[in-house]
């Protein structure tokens, strides 16, 4: 059975790494988690992003966070990517599969996945 003692082991392992990570986080990924986002399927998108960012070893430069209604409910689930010195990228109608691709190509590879951006849907 899982015991809280195991958490203490995780704690000991994490402490060193967290010190290294201070002051980083060049890329901020934000998921809309208001009623509109949740109803449209934001929960699996968020959980996929959190999982893939960690598994791809990107935790040091990418932070994933949640926000309220972004104001474009018809395009939910919406994911915004903020990177210092670059224009914000807004991904719309997201799914867990698309999220995986965005971690791979954009967050890891530096290439915006144009076909999932709001620009591609509006044109």
């Amino acid at each position: 059975m899982k015991s809280l003692a195991e958490l203490q082991k995780i704690k000991a392992n994490m402490k060193q790494r967290i010190v290294l990570r201070e002051g980083s986080g060049d890329i901020r990924v934000v998921v809309g988690m208001a009623t509109c986002g949740i109803a449209a399927g934001a929960r699996p998108v968020l959980n996929e992003l959190v999982k893939d960012v960690s598994e791809e070893g990107l935790s040091e430069k990418v932070t994933v966070s949640q926000t309220g209604c972004i104001g474009i409910c018809q395009y939910e689930p919406v994911v915004e990517v903020f990177e210092a010195g670059k224009e914000k990228v807004t991904y719309v109608k997201m799914t867990a599969e698309k999220a995986k691709e965005i971690v791979e190509k954009h967050l890891k590879g530096g290439q915006v996945v144009e076909e999932y951006t709001i620009g591609a849907y509006q044109s």
């Binding site: 958490l7 994490m14 402490k15 967290i18």
Partner: peptide
């Protein structure tokens, strides 16, 4: 250690 560390 924050609760939202992925390992946690």
């Amino acid at each position: 250690v924050p609760l939202n560390e992925y390992e946690v």
